[in-house]
Simulated assay, not measured.
Amino acid sequence: MHYLRQQLERYTPFNAQEEKDQEIILRYMDTFDNLLTRENEFAHFTASAWIVNEAKTKVLMAYHNIYNSWSWVGGHADGDVDLLHVALKEAKEETGLTNVKPLSEEMYSIEILGVPAHVKKGKHVATHVHLNVTFLLEASEDAPTSIKEDENSAVGWFELNQAIEESTEPDMQVVYRKLNEKLERWSDH
C-alpha cells in the first residue's frame, strides 16, 4: 500500500472533483487497511482503462450487462497494489485485446464512484464506493476484439464525444467528459 499511497500523494489533481477525491482516498487509506479487497464492503480500490486509438480520436468501450450501458473497462484490485497491472489485465479480459499498452505509467485520473446495490452472480451487493484510478491505454483500432460474456455483450470503438452520448449513466458521462478534456490537453504536450 505504501507504493500506491506515494502515487496518490504525488498525483496532480485535474479539477476540484479530483482534488476532493484525492483527499478522501488518502484519508480512507489512513483509516482502513483492507481497501485493496472487497472485504471492505463500503469502499475498495478499482482500476479503469480509458483505451484510445493511436490517433487519440476514438475510445474503446464495452456494453456492460449490469449497468445496461456502454462503459469504460476496469475492475477490482482484488489485492493487487499495482493498479496499472489491474487496468491492463481488465482491458485485455473485457475487450479481447492482446496488444494494449499504457501511454504513461502514471495515473491518468482518479475518482470516487458510487455503485448502486445490485445482484452479481446471484448474490446481493450492497451500495458502496469504488476508489478508482484510471490509466490511459492505447490499442490499434484494427486489433481484433471479443466480449467477456459474463460481463459485457459488445465491444466497440466510438468517437470521443459519441462515447459520452452512448453512456446511459449520467454520473459516468461527467467522468468520460473529464477524461476527454484531459486527453485534449495531454495530446497538446
Score class of each variant (00 low, 15 high):
Ile24Tyr: 10
Thr95Met: 13
Arg10Gln: 11
Leu84Ser: 05
Val100Leu: 13
Glu94Thr: 01
Asn40Thr: 04
Glu105Arg: 11
Asn15Gly: 13
Asn65Asp: 11
Asn40Gln: 06
Glu90His: 04
Val100Glu: 11
Tyr28Gly: 02
Lys58Val: 11
His2Asp: 12
Leu84Trp: 04
Ala55Val: 07
Glu9Pro: 01
Ala77Val: 02
His2Tyr: 05
His64Lys: 08
Glu54Val: 08
Pro13Asp: 06
Gln7Cys: 10
Lys58Met: 13
Ser104Val: 04
Tyr108Asn: 07
Gln7Pro: 12
Gln6Asn: 14
Pro102Ser: 05
Glu90Val: 03
Val100Asn: 11
His2Gln: 13
His85Ile: 12
Leu35Gln: 01
His76Gln: 06
Thr46Arg: 05
Trp72Tyr: 02
Glu41Cys: 00
Val73Gln: 00
Ser71Met: 03
Ala49Thr: 05
Asn65Phe: 03
Lys101Glu: 10
Leu4Lys: 08
Phe42Trp: 09
Thr31Asn: 07
Leu36Ile: 03
Glu39Val: 02
Thr31Cys: 04
Glu9Asp: 08
His64Glu: 06
Phe14Cys: 01
Thr57Met: 07
Ala16Arg: 13
Val59Asn: 10
Gly79Glu: 07
Asp33Gln: 05
Asp33Tyr: 05
Asp21Gln: 12
Lys58Ala: 11
Ala16Gln: 15
Asp82Met: 10
Glu19Met: 15
Ala87Asn: 14
Val100Ile: 14
His2Trp: 08
Ala47Lys: 12
His85Arg: 15
Val100Tyr: 11
Ala87Val: 08
Lys20Ile: 10
Leu84Thr: 04
Pro13Arg: 05
Ala16Tyr: 07
Glu93Val: 12
Tyr67Ser: 07
Arg27Pro: 03
Leu60Tyr: 03
Tyr108Thr: 02
Leu88Phe: 02
Tyr63Cys: 11
Ala77Ser: 12
Tyr63Asn: 10
Glu18Gly: 12
Asp33Met: 03
Leu36Gln: 00
Thr12His: 08
Ser48Met: 05
Asp30Arg: 00
Tyr108Pro: 10
Phe14Glu: 02
Ala55His: 11
Tyr11Trp: 15
Gln17Lys: 13
Ile25His: 01
Tyr67Phe: 03
Asp78Lys: 05
Thr12Trp: 02
Ile66Val: 06
Thr12Glu: 15
Thr95Trp: 15
Asn15Phe: 08
Val100Ser: 09
Ala16Met: 11
Met29Lys: 00
His85Asn: 15
Arg38Val: 07
Leu84Gly: 05
Glu106His: 04
Met29Pro: 01
Asn40Trp: 04
Asn68Cys: 04
Asp33Gly: 05
Glu23Tyr: 08
Glu19Asp: 13
Leu35Asp: 00
Lys101Asn: 10
Met29Thr: 01
Phe32Tyr: 13
Glu90Ser: 05
